[in-house]
C-alpha cells in the first residue's frame, strides 16, 4: 500500500513537472548555460562578469544607441523604444518573469539589438556578461 501510494505521488509529481514548464520553454539560468556552452568554445574563456555586463549595457559602442537607450539604466523598470516611443516591459528577470525563458526569442533580440547597438553580432562572452548582470538586478 505505501509503495503504491508513493508510486501515484511520483506519477503526479512527474505530470506536474511536465505541465508547469509549458508556460516557459526555458529558465533564465538554462539560457545562460546555453550561452556559456558557446562561450566556453572560445580559447581563454574565464567565465562571465556581471560588472562587465553592466558596463557593456550602459555604454555606447560606436552607434547612436546603447542597450540602456531603450531599456533605461534600470533594467527592472519599464523602458521605452528610443525611436517609436513604444513602452518596453522590464528586461530583468526579477521584474519580468517572461524574460529569457525562450531561446528563440533571446536569439532574435540579441541579433537585432546587437546590430543596432554595435553594428555587428554580440559574442557569447558579451551576451553572457549582460545576462549575468541582468540576473543580479533586483526588482
Amino acid at each position: 500500500m505505501p509503495a503504491k501510494l508513493s508510486k501515484s505521488v511520483w506519477v503526479f509529481v512527474a505530470l506536474a513537472g511536465f505541465a508547469m514548464p509549458a508556460a516557459y520553454a526555458e529558465t533564465p539560468n538554462e539560457v545562460l548555460s546555453s550561452i556559456q556552452q558557446d562561450a566556453a568554445a572560445t580559447p581563454g574563456f574565464q567565465g562571465f562578469s556581471g560588472a562587465r555586463g553592466e558596463k557593456f549595457f550602459r555604454e555606447k559602442h560606436g552607434n547612436e544607441w546603447s542597450c540602456s537607450s531603450c531599456h533605461t539604466d534600470n533594467p527592472a523598470a519599464q523602458g521605452k523604444h528610443a525611436k517609436t516611443g513604444k513602452a518596453i516591459q522590464a528586461l530583468a528577470p526579477a521584474a519580468n518573469a517572461e524574460r529569457f525563458t525562450n531561446m528563440k526569442k533571446v536569439d532574435k533580440w540579441f541579433k537585432r539589438n546587437c546590430t543596432d547597438v554595435l553594428g555587428r553580432s554580440c559574442t557569447a562572452q558579451e551576451k553572457g556578461d549582460v545576462l549575468t548582470y541582468l540576473l543580479t538586478v533586483k526588482k
Partner: peptide, 12 residues
C-alpha cells in the same frame, strides 16, 4: 527587415 528604417527587425 534586417534594415528596417534604420533598425534590425529580422525574423526567422
Amino acid at each position: 527587415l534586417d534594415k528596417h528604417f534604420g533598425s534590425d527587425a529580422s525574423l526567422d
